[in-house]
Design a protein around this nucleic acid. Structure first.
Lengths: 193, 193
DNA sequence: CCGTGAAGGCTAATAGCATTAGTCTTGTGA
DNA sequence: TCACAAGACTAATGCTATTAGCCTTCACGG
Protein backbone atom coordinates (compact mmCIF):
# COMPACT_ATOMS: atom_id res chain seq x y z
CA UNK A 1 0.00 0.00 0.00
CA UNK A 2 2.78 2.53 0.48
CA UNK A 3 4.02 4.97 -0.57
CA UNK A 4 1.07 7.34 -0.20
CA UNK A 5 1.51 8.44 3.36
CA UNK A 6 -0.97 6.81 5.70
CA UNK A 7 -0.07 9.19 8.46
CA UNK A 8 0.75 12.84 9.05
CA UNK A 9 3.44 13.92 11.45
CA UNK A 10 1.05 16.31 13.19
CA UNK A 11 -1.51 13.55 13.70
CA UNK A 12 1.14 11.36 15.26
CA UNK A 13 2.03 14.10 17.70
CA UNK A 14 -1.60 14.70 18.59
CA UNK A 15 -2.31 11.04 19.14
CA UNK A 16 0.86 10.68 21.20
CA UNK A 17 -0.26 13.55 23.43
CA UNK A 18 -3.63 11.92 23.81
CA UNK A 19 -2.19 8.52 24.68
CA UNK A 20 0.33 9.93 27.12
CA UNK A 21 -2.38 11.83 28.88
CA UNK A 22 -4.82 8.94 29.05
CA UNK A 23 -2.47 6.01 29.60
CA UNK A 24 0.62 7.54 31.14
CA UNK A 25 4.01 8.28 29.65
CA UNK A 26 5.45 4.86 30.37
CA UNK A 27 2.61 3.21 28.49
CA UNK A 28 3.33 5.09 25.29
CA UNK A 29 5.36 2.69 23.18
CA UNK A 30 6.14 3.10 19.53
CA UNK A 31 4.11 -0.07 19.10
CA UNK A 32 1.04 1.39 20.68
CA UNK A 33 1.30 4.66 18.81
CA UNK A 34 1.84 2.93 15.49
CA UNK A 35 -1.01 0.51 16.19
CA UNK A 36 -3.36 3.45 16.67
CA UNK A 37 -2.74 4.26 13.01
CA UNK A 38 -2.65 0.70 11.78
CA UNK A 39 1.01 0.79 10.87
CA UNK A 40 4.08 -0.97 12.24
CA UNK A 41 6.38 0.55 14.84
CA UNK A 42 9.50 0.90 12.68
CA UNK A 43 7.56 2.99 10.19
CA UNK A 44 7.52 5.79 12.73
CA UNK A 45 11.19 6.31 12.05
CA UNK A 46 10.23 7.88 8.75
CA UNK A 47 8.53 10.63 10.70
CA UNK A 48 10.77 11.03 13.76
CA UNK A 49 14.46 10.47 14.24
CA UNK A 50 13.72 8.42 17.34
CA UNK A 51 11.41 8.27 20.31
CA UNK A 52 13.15 11.19 21.99
CA UNK A 53 12.45 13.40 19.00
CA UNK A 54 8.80 12.38 19.14
CA UNK A 55 8.59 13.32 22.80
CA UNK A 56 10.33 16.61 22.15
CA UNK A 57 7.72 17.37 19.51
CA UNK A 58 5.02 16.48 22.01
CA UNK A 59 6.54 18.93 24.46
CA UNK A 60 6.66 21.68 21.88
CA UNK A 61 3.01 21.09 21.05
CA UNK A 62 2.10 21.16 24.72
CA UNK A 63 3.92 24.44 25.20
CA UNK A 64 2.07 26.00 22.27
CA UNK A 65 -1.25 24.78 23.54
CA UNK A 66 -0.45 26.24 26.93
CA UNK A 67 0.18 29.65 25.42
CA UNK A 68 -3.08 29.47 23.55
CA UNK A 69 -4.93 28.54 26.71
CA UNK A 70 -3.42 31.49 28.55
CA UNK A 71 -4.31 33.93 25.82
CA UNK A 72 -7.80 32.54 25.53
CA UNK A 73 -8.30 32.91 29.27
CA UNK A 74 -7.10 36.50 29.10
CA UNK A 75 -9.36 37.40 26.23
CA UNK A 76 -12.39 35.99 28.01
CA UNK A 77 -12.01 38.40 30.89
CA UNK A 78 -14.30 41.39 31.15
CA UNK A 79 -13.19 44.52 29.38
CA UNK A 80 -12.67 46.05 32.78
CA UNK A 81 -10.34 43.29 33.89
CA UNK A 82 -8.44 43.40 30.64
CA UNK A 83 -7.76 47.05 31.19
CA UNK A 84 -6.32 46.49 34.65
CA UNK A 85 -2.97 44.77 34.21
CA UNK A 86 -3.08 43.03 37.58
CA UNK A 87 -6.50 41.54 36.89
CA UNK A 88 -5.50 40.60 33.37
CA UNK A 89 -2.42 38.83 34.67
CA UNK A 90 -4.44 36.93 37.23
CA UNK A 91 -6.82 35.76 34.54
CA UNK A 92 -3.91 34.46 32.52
CA UNK A 93 -2.46 32.65 35.47
CA UNK A 94 -5.79 31.00 36.15
CA UNK A 95 -5.84 29.89 32.54
CA UNK A 96 -2.35 28.52 32.99
CA UNK A 97 -3.35 26.50 36.01
CA UNK A 98 -6.49 25.19 34.35
CA UNK A 99 -4.45 23.99 31.42
CA UNK A 100 -2.11 22.14 33.72
CA UNK A 101 -5.06 20.49 35.43
CA UNK A 102 -6.52 19.47 32.10
CA UNK A 103 -3.22 18.06 30.81
CA UNK A 104 -1.27 17.06 33.90
CA UNK A 105 1.02 14.45 32.41
CA UNK A 106 2.09 16.35 29.33
CA UNK A 107 2.34 19.58 31.29
CA UNK A 108 4.72 17.94 33.74
CA UNK A 109 6.76 16.52 30.89
CA UNK A 110 7.55 19.95 29.55
CA UNK A 111 9.25 21.07 32.73
CA UNK A 112 10.27 17.92 34.51
CA UNK A 113 13.41 17.29 32.50
CA UNK A 114 16.61 17.83 34.31
CA UNK A 115 18.85 18.50 31.38
CA UNK A 116 17.68 15.97 28.81
CA UNK A 117 17.01 16.60 25.15
CA UNK A 118 13.30 16.97 25.66
CA UNK A 119 13.30 20.68 26.22
CA UNK A 120 11.35 22.76 23.75
CA UNK A 121 13.70 24.90 21.72
CA UNK A 122 14.41 28.45 22.92
CA UNK A 123 11.95 29.95 20.47
CA UNK A 124 9.05 27.96 21.88
CA UNK A 125 10.23 28.68 25.38
CA UNK A 126 10.24 32.39 24.69
CA UNK A 127 6.79 32.33 23.13
CA UNK A 128 5.60 30.80 26.36
CA UNK A 129 6.81 33.60 28.57
CA UNK A 130 6.28 36.53 26.31
CA UNK A 131 2.58 37.14 26.97
CA UNK A 132 3.21 36.94 30.69
CA UNK A 133 6.13 39.28 30.58
CA UNK A 134 4.23 41.88 28.59
CA UNK A 135 1.54 42.10 31.18
CA UNK A 136 4.02 41.95 34.02
CA UNK A 137 5.75 44.94 32.49
CA UNK A 138 2.50 46.85 32.71
CA UNK A 139 2.23 45.92 36.39
CA UNK A 140 5.70 46.69 37.71
CA UNK A 141 7.38 48.49 34.82
CA UNK A 142 9.75 47.04 32.25
CA UNK A 143 12.83 47.38 34.42
CA UNK A 144 11.63 45.04 37.14
CA UNK A 145 9.56 42.87 34.90
CA UNK A 146 12.03 40.04 34.41
CA UNK A 147 12.61 39.17 38.06
CA UNK A 148 8.97 39.85 38.87
CA UNK A 149 7.93 37.50 36.11
CA UNK A 150 10.27 34.79 37.26
CA UNK A 151 8.89 34.88 40.75
CA UNK A 152 5.31 34.83 39.54
CA UNK A 153 5.88 32.06 37.08
CA UNK A 154 7.73 30.08 39.74
CA UNK A 155 4.84 30.52 42.13
CA UNK A 156 2.27 29.32 39.64
CA UNK A 157 4.36 26.49 38.25
CA UNK A 158 5.34 25.32 41.69
CA UNK A 159 1.82 25.43 42.97
CA UNK A 160 0.55 23.41 40.08
CA UNK A 161 3.35 20.87 40.28
CA UNK A 162 2.87 20.33 43.99
CA UNK A 163 -0.84 19.92 43.42
CA UNK A 164 -0.29 17.41 40.63
CA UNK A 165 2.29 15.52 42.65
CA UNK A 166 -0.27 15.18 45.40
CA UNK A 167 1.78 17.10 47.92
CA UNK A 168 -1.03 19.28 49.15
CA UNK A 169 -2.60 16.46 51.04
CA UNK A 170 -4.15 18.32 53.88
CA UNK A 171 -7.10 19.31 51.77
CA UNK A 172 -8.57 22.75 52.01
CA UNK A 173 -9.74 24.83 49.11
CA UNK A 174 -6.89 24.75 46.65
CA UNK A 175 -8.58 27.08 44.19
CA UNK A 176 -8.76 29.61 46.93
CA UNK A 177 -5.23 28.93 48.11
CA UNK A 178 -3.99 29.50 44.59
CA UNK A 179 -5.85 32.76 44.24
CA UNK A 180 -4.55 33.89 47.61
CA UNK A 181 -0.97 32.95 46.87
CA UNK A 182 -0.95 34.78 43.58
CA UNK A 183 -2.53 37.86 45.09
CA UNK A 184 -0.12 37.78 47.98
CA UNK A 185 2.79 37.83 45.59
CA UNK A 186 1.25 40.63 43.59
CA UNK A 187 0.69 42.58 46.77
CA UNK A 188 4.35 42.15 47.57
CA UNK A 189 5.26 43.49 44.16
CA UNK A 190 3.25 46.61 44.77
CA UNK A 191 5.27 47.38 47.92
CA UNK A 192 7.79 50.17 47.43
CA UNK A 193 10.72 48.79 49.49
CA UNK B 1 29.18 -17.49 49.21
CA UNK B 2 25.69 -16.72 50.37
CA UNK B 3 23.86 -16.58 52.66
CA UNK B 4 25.76 -13.91 54.63
CA UNK B 5 24.45 -10.77 53.03
CA UNK B 6 26.95 -9.06 50.75
CA UNK B 7 24.84 -5.99 50.64
CA UNK B 8 22.69 -3.82 52.90
CA UNK B 9 19.45 -2.36 51.72
CA UNK B 10 20.52 1.08 52.90
CA UNK B 11 23.75 0.85 50.93
CA UNK B 12 21.83 -0.06 47.82
CA UNK B 13 19.64 3.00 48.23
CA UNK B 14 22.64 5.25 48.78
CA UNK B 15 24.47 3.92 45.77
CA UNK B 16 21.35 4.21 43.64
CA UNK B 17 21.01 7.85 44.64
CA UNK B 18 24.61 8.43 43.75
CA UNK B 19 24.34 6.75 40.38
CA UNK B 20 21.10 8.49 39.48
CA UNK B 21 22.65 11.83 40.31
CA UNK B 22 25.89 11.20 38.44
CA UNK B 23 24.66 9.23 35.44
CA UNK B 24 21.02 10.18 35.13
CA UNK B 25 17.89 8.28 36.01
CA UNK B 26 17.64 6.48 32.70
CA UNK B 27 21.16 5.10 33.11
CA UNK B 28 20.36 3.42 36.39
CA UNK B 29 19.66 -0.19 35.51
CA UNK B 30 19.40 -3.02 37.95
CA UNK B 31 22.45 -4.37 36.18
CA UNK B 32 24.52 -1.30 36.86
CA UNK B 33 23.44 -1.05 40.47
CA UNK B 34 24.11 -4.72 41.12
CA UNK B 35 27.45 -4.51 39.36
CA UNK B 36 28.51 -1.74 41.72
CA UNK B 37 28.25 -4.31 44.50
CA UNK B 38 29.63 -7.22 42.55
CA UNK B 39 26.37 -9.12 42.52
CA UNK B 40 23.92 -10.08 39.79
CA UNK B 41 20.85 -8.06 38.93
CA UNK B 42 18.22 -10.59 39.95
CA UNK B 43 19.66 -10.71 43.45
CA UNK B 44 18.32 -7.22 43.99
CA UNK B 45 14.86 -8.71 44.13
CA UNK B 46 15.74 -10.08 47.54
CA UNK B 47 16.02 -6.50 48.74
CA UNK B 48 13.32 -4.73 46.77
CA UNK B 49 10.03 -5.92 45.40
CA UNK B 50 10.92 -4.42 42.05
CA UNK B 51 12.61 -1.42 40.50
CA UNK B 52 9.72 0.86 41.37
CA UNK B 53 10.09 0.01 45.04
CA UNK B 54 13.78 0.83 44.83
CA UNK B 55 13.04 4.21 43.31
CA UNK B 56 10.39 4.90 45.91
CA UNK B 57 12.99 4.20 48.59
CA UNK B 58 15.36 6.57 46.83
CA UNK B 59 12.69 9.24 46.90
CA UNK B 60 12.06 8.74 50.59
CA UNK B 61 15.77 9.03 51.29
CA UNK B 62 15.97 12.19 49.23
CA UNK B 63 13.06 13.72 51.11
CA UNK B 64 14.71 12.98 54.44
CA UNK B 65 17.99 14.44 53.29
CA UNK B 66 16.17 17.55 52.15
CA UNK B 67 14.67 18.05 55.58
CA UNK B 68 18.05 17.64 57.18
CA UNK B 69 19.55 20.16 54.81
CA UNK B 70 16.85 22.67 55.64
CA UNK B 71 17.27 22.24 59.35
CA UNK B 72 21.03 22.46 59.09
CA UNK B 73 20.75 25.69 57.13
CA UNK B 74 18.41 27.11 59.74
CA UNK B 75 20.67 26.19 62.61
CA UNK B 76 23.65 27.81 60.95
CA UNK B 77 21.99 31.20 60.90
CA UNK B 78 23.05 33.82 63.40
CA UNK B 79 21.24 33.83 66.74
CA UNK B 80 19.66 37.07 65.68
CA UNK B 81 18.27 35.61 62.46
CA UNK B 82 17.03 32.55 64.27
CA UNK B 83 15.06 34.74 66.59
CA UNK B 84 13.33 36.57 63.74
CA UNK B 85 10.90 34.14 62.13
CA UNK B 86 11.04 35.77 58.72
CA UNK B 87 14.83 35.62 58.60
CA UNK B 88 14.82 32.08 59.92
CA UNK B 89 12.38 31.04 57.24
CA UNK B 90 14.45 32.63 54.54
CA UNK B 91 17.51 30.76 55.74
CA UNK B 92 15.62 27.51 55.53
CA UNK B 93 14.40 28.26 52.04
CA UNK B 94 17.94 29.01 50.93
CA UNK B 95 18.97 25.68 52.36
CA UNK B 96 16.14 24.07 50.44
CA UNK B 97 17.26 25.60 47.19
CA UNK B 98 20.89 24.70 47.77
CA UNK B 99 19.91 21.11 48.34
CA UNK B 100 17.99 21.05 45.07
CA UNK B 101 21.01 22.47 43.27
CA UNK B 102 23.28 19.88 44.81
CA UNK B 103 20.93 16.98 43.99
CA UNK B 104 18.99 18.12 40.95
CA UNK B 105 18.03 14.77 39.51
CA UNK B 106 16.89 13.09 42.69
CA UNK B 107 15.20 16.26 43.87
CA UNK B 108 13.16 16.41 40.69
CA UNK B 109 12.26 12.76 41.03
CA UNK B 110 10.56 13.35 44.34
CA UNK B 111 8.08 15.81 42.92
CA UNK B 112 7.93 15.12 39.22
CA UNK B 113 5.62 12.14 39.43
CA UNK B 114 2.13 12.69 38.23
CA UNK B 115 0.35 10.05 40.23
CA UNK B 116 2.73 7.08 40.03
CA UNK B 117 3.75 4.88 42.91
CA UNK B 118 6.97 6.76 43.50
CA UNK B 119 5.56 9.20 45.99
CA UNK B 120 7.06 9.13 49.44
CA UNK B 121 4.50 7.95 51.95
CA UNK B 122 2.40 10.56 53.78
CA UNK B 123 4.56 10.36 56.88
CA UNK B 124 7.69 11.36 54.98
CA UNK B 125 5.76 14.02 53.14
CA UNK B 126 4.58 15.52 56.38
CA UNK B 127 8.05 15.49 57.91
CA UNK B 128 9.12 17.52 54.93
CA UNK B 129 6.67 20.33 55.47
CA UNK B 130 6.54 20.39 59.23
CA UNK B 131 9.62 22.51 59.89
CA UNK B 132 8.49 25.02 57.31
CA UNK B 133 5.01 25.23 58.68
CA UNK B 134 6.20 25.78 62.21
CA UNK B 135 8.18 28.79 61.22
CA UNK B 136 5.47 30.03 58.91
CA UNK B 137 3.08 29.92 61.85
CA UNK B 138 5.40 32.24 63.70
CA UNK B 139 5.35 34.63 60.75
CA UNK B 140 1.66 34.87 59.93
CA UNK B 141 -0.03 33.09 62.82
CA UNK B 142 -1.26 29.52 62.94
CA UNK B 143 -4.60 30.28 61.30
CA UNK B 144 -3.17 31.48 58.02
CA UNK B 145 -0.10 29.29 58.12
CA UNK B 146 -1.33 26.52 55.84
CA UNK B 147 -2.17 28.61 52.78
CA UNK B 148 0.82 30.87 53.43
CA UNK B 149 3.05 27.83 53.56
CA UNK B 150 1.62 26.39 50.37
CA UNK B 151 2.27 29.58 48.49
CA UNK B 152 5.79 29.89 49.80
CA UNK B 153 6.64 26.30 49.14
CA UNK B 154 5.16 26.59 45.67
CA UNK B 155 7.28 29.65 44.99
CA UNK B 156 10.48 27.99 46.08
CA UNK B 157 9.77 24.66 44.44
CA UNK B 158 8.67 26.29 41.22
CA UNK B 159 11.69 28.55 41.11
CA UNK B 160 14.05 25.68 41.60
CA UNK B 161 12.32 23.46 39.06
CA UNK B 162 12.32 26.15 36.42
CA UNK B 163 15.99 26.78 37.09
CA UNK B 164 16.81 23.10 36.82
CA UNK B 165 14.74 22.71 33.68
CA UNK B 166 16.75 25.51 32.15
CA UNK B 167 13.76 27.76 31.67
CA UNK B 168 15.40 30.87 33.06
CA UNK B 169 17.52 31.30 30.00
CA UNK B 170 17.82 35.00 29.89
CA UNK B 171 20.56 34.96 32.46
CA UNK B 172 20.68 37.52 35.21
CA UNK B 173 21.55 36.86 38.81
CA UNK B 174 19.35 33.96 39.78
CA UNK B 175 20.52 33.95 43.39
CA UNK B 176 19.35 37.48 43.63
CA UNK B 177 16.13 36.82 41.76
CA UNK B 178 15.37 34.01 44.19
CA UNK B 179 16.01 36.17 47.20
CA UNK B 180 13.86 38.92 45.74
CA UNK B 181 11.01 36.62 44.86
CA UNK B 182 10.92 35.10 48.32
CA UNK B 183 11.07 38.50 49.99
CA UNK B 184 8.37 39.82 47.70
CA UNK B 185 6.08 37.01 48.74
CA UNK B 186 6.88 37.57 52.38
CA UNK B 187 6.17 41.27 51.96
CA UNK B 188 2.83 40.38 50.49
CA UNK B 189 2.10 38.22 53.50
CA UNK B 190 2.77 41.09 55.85
CA UNK B 191 0.21 43.28 54.08
CA UNK B 192 -3.06 43.64 55.90
CA UNK B 193 -4.73 43.77 52.47
C1' DC C 1 26.33 -32.49 67.07
C1' DC C 2 23.01 -32.52 63.39
C1' DG C 3 19.71 -31.30 60.29
C1' DT C 4 16.50 -28.10 58.58
C1' DG C 5 15.03 -23.95 56.70
C1' DA C 6 15.29 -19.25 55.46
C1' DA C 7 18.26 -15.74 53.47
C1' DG C 8 20.56 -14.42 49.71
C1' DG C 9 23.36 -15.48 46.12
C1' DC C 10 23.59 -17.55 41.01
C1' DT C 11 22.33 -18.87 36.03
C1' DA C 12 18.98 -19.42 32.45
C1' DA C 13 14.94 -18.02 30.27
C1' DT C 14 11.12 -14.76 28.87
C1' DA C 15 8.82 -10.87 27.13
C1' DG C 16 8.72 -6.03 25.95
C1' DC C 17 10.99 -2.26 23.97
C1' DA C 18 13.73 0.83 20.82
C1' DT C 19 16.26 0.69 17.03
C1' DT C 20 18.61 -0.96 12.48
C1' DA C 21 18.88 -3.34 8.04
C1' DG C 22 17.06 -4.63 4.06
C1' DT C 23 13.05 -5.39 0.98
C1' DC C 24 8.92 -4.07 -1.60
C1' DT C 25 5.48 -0.94 -3.57
C1' DT C 26 3.68 3.20 -5.37
C1' DG C 27 3.19 7.57 -7.27
C1' DT C 28 5.62 11.70 -9.33
C1' DG C 29 8.27 14.28 -12.34
C1' DA C 30 11.68 14.11 -16.01
C1' DT D 1 7.68 5.62 -19.77
C1' DC D 2 10.64 4.93 -16.25
C1' DA D 3 13.85 5.93 -12.41
C1' DC D 4 13.71 7.13 -7.75
C1' DA D 5 12.20 8.79 -3.37
C1' DA D 6 8.87 8.15 0.16
C1' DG D 7 6.99 5.25 3.13
C1' DA D 8 5.39 0.93 4.41
C1' DC D 9 6.78 -4.03 5.97
C1' DT D 10 9.36 -8.04 8.14
C1' DA D 11 13.31 -9.84 10.47
C1' DA D 12 16.91 -9.34 13.55
C1' DT D 13 19.67 -7.17 17.55
C1' DG D 14 20.60 -5.81 22.09
C1' DC D 15 19.18 -4.05 26.32
C1' DT D 16 15.74 -4.26 30.17
C1' DA D 17 13.02 -5.87 33.94
C1' DT D 18 11.37 -9.75 35.83
C1' DT D 19 10.56 -14.89 36.95
C1' DA D 20 11.90 -19.66 37.93
C1' DG D 21 14.65 -22.84 39.85
C1' DC D 22 18.95 -24.18 41.97
C1' DC D 23 22.80 -23.96 45.49
C1' DT D 24 25.32 -22.53 49.64
C1' DT D 25 25.69 -20.85 54.20
C1' DC D 26 24.69 -20.12 58.80
C1' DA D 27 21.41 -19.86 63.01
C1' DC D 28 18.91 -22.61 65.96
C1' DG D 29 16.00 -26.28 68.04
C1' DG D 30 16.36 -31.09 69.10
Amino acid sequence: MPYPSQVQRADLIDKARELIESEGLDRLTLQSLAAAFGIAAPSLYHHFKNKTALLAAVNAATASALVEAMLAAASQASAEDQADPTSALIHMLHGYRMFAHAHPVTYSMVFANTMSALKPDPKTAEALVLPLQEIMARVVGAAKSLPALRGGWALVHGFVMLELAGQFQRGGDLDNAFETAVRTYMDGLRQPE
